[in-house]
Design a binder for these strands. Sequence first.
DNA 1: CAAGTCGTGGATACTATACATCCACGTTAG
DNA 2: CTAACGTGGATGTATAGTATCCACGACTTG
Lengths: 159, 159
Amino acid sequence: MKLSEGVEWGLHCALLLAEAPAGVPLPRRVLAEHYGLPEAYLAKHLQALTRAGLLHATPGPSGGFRLARPAGEITVLDVLDAIEGPASPFVCQEIRQQGTGAARPEECTRPCAIASVMVRAHQAWRESLRAVTLDQLVNRVPQALRKRNRAKLGTDAPS
Amino acid sequence: MKLSEGVEWGLHCALLLAEAPAGVPLPRRVLAEHYGLPEAYLAKHLQALTRAGLLHATPGPSGGFRLARPAGEITVLDVLDAIEGPASPFVCQEIRQQGTGAARPEECTRPCAIASVMVRAHQAWRESLRAVTLDQLVNRVPQALRKRNRAKLGTDAPS
DNA sequence: CAAGTCGTGGATACTATACATCCACGTTAG
DNA sequence: CTAACGTGGATGTATAGTATCCACGACTTG
């Protein structure tokens, strides 16, 4: 079981957008270079975040990505669902109904006990991720780094 | 992110061993046919469960696998760790230290906030699985099926 | 003690998914 | 109009899971 790296990328990019000065969209080129990521592939994940309604994409020169909602209203789970999908890592193959020991249909009215356990565990995992917003993550970034990022990304000085 | 099917196989096999009459080892051939699984591949997973100390393997004719501990002392997490490994699905690539926006080493004394969140979620997942034993799972198998399995597997009638 | 049953471990091949890139297209600011 | 930027499709590569086979050692039965 392995989570795709795209999740880490999406999370860091969303976090960076939350750190950056408000209305300024960051082009994918800046995002990719900031973390040393392949720009073309990162674009796919940014698309997913946009489709999920977490980011807002502005085309054209001086375009780019910005958060579609306040950082306090975007959870880690939101980002994960957008990139990895909400499905459980465990997919029951119903092997209880196969082979010489196959359970009869009337014995399978209730979901397989094993599948139920895995579903509950998956829900616990999701709840844990739903409890954290981008806002809270920003506060855990070292202040020096946060200041440096704002300076680097906020090309638009106070007009 | 996808959990390997081997986990489901291992879980069902362990559950079946917990259902079966006590001291009778079940050969992998029986286990494979009971669920319609490829015997050679299932053997790999049974090996993993044996190495982890959950099953006890008896070589020779009339050999096979049995639980190494009472069913009440084996958790779903035990089986999962044995087959899938205990590692978190999220592996932090430390991209915060890469690219033009790289954080300085002195800013990385604390683990990345994103990685921390993922670790906590993984722990929540594991705790949920640790809370369930094979014993509890057996009780959720339909009684008719349980009886049928005992009859089918317990070739050794009361002597 | 001989033969057949069973688990062990290594080597090998296939397949699905994630990773990665490129290009043609539509949109927009200057 | 043109250059910058996001969109979406087509394509290729790499990694991990799935699956099989075979040689070997252990053990039980006859």
